[in-house]
Amino acid sequence: MYNDKVLEAFKNPKNVGAMENADAEGTVGNASCGDIMKIYLKIENDVIIDAKFETFGCAAAIASSSTATEMIIGKTLDEALKIKNSDVIEKLEGLPPQKIHCSVLAEEAIKEAIQNYRAKKA
């Protein structure tokens, strides 16, 4: 069902775990639907210098979270906001149709974290 890239990201996910003193956090999804994604960001001068995640969900959700955190590290907040779920899917070289929502969750988690950060600053 999953390609090797997704399986690898699931087996050895990057940037796993909670982040102490994160500058921003974003949580999306809910347990009754079967996925929750939480993204933590460390931000300096509007640049994401570190990102971590915690996910309750299927293999696609875990792989999407891992990939999304890898994609945003080093990006400015504006650049990170431009990341779409299709970019996550592309990086993973494809997801099964019924798992597309997992990549959407990753996009939303990033946006949520950045919005929370900006709201806090403002």
């Binding site: 996910p13 775990g17 929750i36 994604m37 915690e54 996910t55 309750f56």
Partner: peptide, 8 residues
């Protein structure tokens, strides 16, 4: 569970 936000 180490990955899960619920467990922590």
């Amino acid at each position: 569970r180490a990955i899960s936000p619920l467990f922590k």
